[in-house]
Design a protein around this nucleic acid. Sequence first.
DNA 1: CAGTGGTCTAGACCACATG
DNA 2: ATGTGGTCTAGACCACTGT
Lengths: 240, 240
Amino acid sequence: MAAEQLLGAKPLYRQTRDLLVQRIVDGVWAPGEVLPSETQLAAELGVSQGTVRKALDEMTAERLVVRRQGRGTFVASLDDSRILFQFFKLIADDGEPRFPASRVLEVETMRGNPKARRALQLDPAAWVIAITRVRSLAEEPCVFEHITLPAAYFSGIEERPIPNNLYQLYAVDYGVTVGRATERLKAVAAGAPEADALGVAAGTPLLAIDRVATAIDGRICEWRVSLCRTDQVHYLSDLR
Amino acid sequence: MAAEQLLGAKPLYRQTRDLLVQRIVDGVWAPGEVLPSETQLAAELGVSQGTVRKALDEMTAERLVVRRQGRGTFVASLDDSRILFQFFKLIADDGEPRFPASRVLEVETMRGNPKARRALQLDPAAWVIAITRVRSLAEEPCVFEHITLPAAYFSGIEERPIPNNLYQLYAVDYGVTVGRATERLKAVAAGAPEADALGVAAGTPLLAIDRVATAIDGRICEWRVSLCRTDQVHYLSDLR
DNA sequence: CAGTGGTCTAGACCACATG
DNA sequence: ATGTGGTCTAGACCACTGT
């Protein structure tokens, strides 16, 4: 064990974490499933229970697993409440976070344009799937959204019904679990298509959110540009 | 110890954390200063070294302390690099995060208006200090900023030079260490004063950032509204 | 009741920084 | 050489969950 650590130059608990993460990525344990107990993992991997615990504690902090006293350790799943907490930052000015309704306008398979290829880090020849939809909060259309996916990861998705919670679809049907995302925000003037879809005048200030999402295995898996009316809604960002 | 834990219903490592946090709040150890070693703290508080470690690990995660192997554990300070990382999310589209230059337009002491009193949770009669400034990135004015402070926490600040890094001033001169902040973002049309200050046409879309900052002792200590041109700059938000 | 995660302890050894 | 935090282990006991 000491030798392994010297060779790897990584602490044992991190090697343990990486190994467990790899198993989740490989689908050995699916989202929502229970992992073996600390004792069992420690015995199987030949490390102490404390080391397994530290690995699992890190994975808890990364939201890869959820631990419940008396029950076990479970692979985290992207259910609505987690999406709302982690990946949906638009909130009605007066209220709680709520999941928006959505109406799909178009789904299309095409060669990625240069912007999409850059965002998704794809080859020039690569195909992408483009989804356009309008999302509403409190019956009020407020987000005009373009989603671009690498066709290689999501083949056939264009023939499925597009659910409201896309990330759960990615995870359950394609084994692509979104782990984190980077958003870049700007204020822009509404152009004709989005003004139309949102029922505002062209030129109205909109919040543009440019998101690139990365799966837990490190692959970039989605590029999404959302144009949002912010007259009744705001984007919440906690600085900790 | 067992008795204390049963009474408090809080685990020992959390009690230890709370006690250490209180000492930092009280100024027993100032920002940048070194804490006693784990061994010393464990002996003084009558707990094991592992418990002190767990308390300090939590405080590290909360960015209250910084630990350096071989040197010691230090109270975190709000130096420029940390501000940039934690509290300044505007970045030039092409470049790295950089600290903006700033020019103060006005400093004023007044009775808080209703909005300010609500944001800062102050009594109707309370006084506030209002600072107006313009901040520039790459020589280009891009943020028009209104800062409102409770006069009770910052008496005399209106007679000081206003430095670029305000949070360090709060911490060093007033013992108010900002620990976290909540930002609410909207896209708005530029009004006359900010259009003028930023050199854009009235009606230009601007990113409005409404921030309420809270000190490590839980007191709300600053309300700040920033109006930002986002033609060359964006707001970065990491979703983890 | 048995099995799980959560807390707490004690001690050994390693890696790093400083004098 | 000394002292610091970082890693790893082993074991005890508590609190919660389901049977």
